[in-house]
Nucleic acid binder design. Structure first.
Lengths: 170, 170
DNA sequence: CCGTATCCTGATAGATACTG
DNA sequence: CAGTATCTATCAGGATACGG
């Protein structure tokens, strides 16, 4: 029986911690749309140019432009205009560290799709370039344990007292 | 310079492997909308009842109903009607194994938000219930290495020859 | 409680034509 | 190439009222 996470007392579903401040919701706000996910996927695949994003994700130029602008504004992609001598300048977009750090999320979505959709595990796989072995997403605690859902526990980051002492800025 | 994944030859961005068959795109098709993500988050948090989903995710009843129906149809949630003796029956929804297996993706989104949004790491954290240590998302290869983006390589799951020998079922 | 039914808004995004 | 400009269709989702 696959259950939910364990919760420490002050976090039970009824008590008032505002779910809208949850990092998942905020992250989804940044990645508001499906096209944003797919643009990022393309960036991980090495795409840098406007036209390639448009064609390979299957978006209209207007949508591509809007997403790229948004992702640059949010700091996940950055402009990178380069010039091969003798040719005209090309514009490009590439992942920032902030954007690149989303890869585990994309990898987890891919892994889920490989496991539960389609019949035979998806068209591509992730490997360790060094040893050639397949790569999977894991949840590890800092004690070094590889965890299952049932072993996880959701806890408040700070005690209510600490939060009063150090209120949110702005 | 945070770059993209390494790719094996047959996967360069120009060659024709259909990106629409990519597991990320397919998974996003299932989780089409933001509310679906948030409903699942709530399910991991232990919410089971219609009204709690509605209130805690902040959706209209119509949207809640549509998402729950969809998630049940897709096999991520299942109905669970239960009855405390002497009370009327309650309806509920709970995660299936298929739904529960999405947790790493949610955890990765949460971790990204904790790192890159907000000032101080988000309102809640994930811990190992046994040892109390904080939990992080990792990419591990089956050789046991903990990997960074630069060490990853995207490869076709099967060779074209193998795909001909063993064509897609159904 | 657990939903369904309506109405209405804005955002997402497809198609297409055009410009530096 | 790398976009901008329209014009439209579709859909996500808020508000509200109502029924089992």
């Amino acid at each position: 029986m696959p259950a939910a996470l364990q919760m420490t007392g002050s976090l039970n579903p009824r008590s008032g911690w505002e779910a809208d401040r949850c990092s998942i919701a905020q992250t989804l706000e940044v990645l508001s749309t499906k096209s944003a996910f797919l643009i990022l996927r393309e960036a991980f695949y090495g795409t840098t140019r406007f036209d390639d994003f448009t064609r390979r994700v299957g978006l209209s130029p207007a949508v591509t432009a809007a997403r790229l602008r948004e992702l640059v504004r949010r700091g996940l992609l950055e402009r990178e205009d380069y010039q091969v001598p003798g040719q005209r300048t090309r514009r490009g977009y590439r992942l920032t560290p902030r954007g690149a750090d989303l890869f585990p999320a994309l990898a987890a979505l891919m892994q889920w799709g490989d496991r539960w959709l389609g019949e035979d595990g998806g068209p591509v796989m992730l490997r360790h370039h060094g040893c050639g072995q397949q790569v999977d997403v894991h949840l590890l605690c800092r004690g070094g344990h590889d965890l299952k859902l049932e072993e996880l526990e959701l806890a408040p980051s700070r005690t209510p007292a600490a939060r009063r002492r150090q209120p949110r800025r702005r």
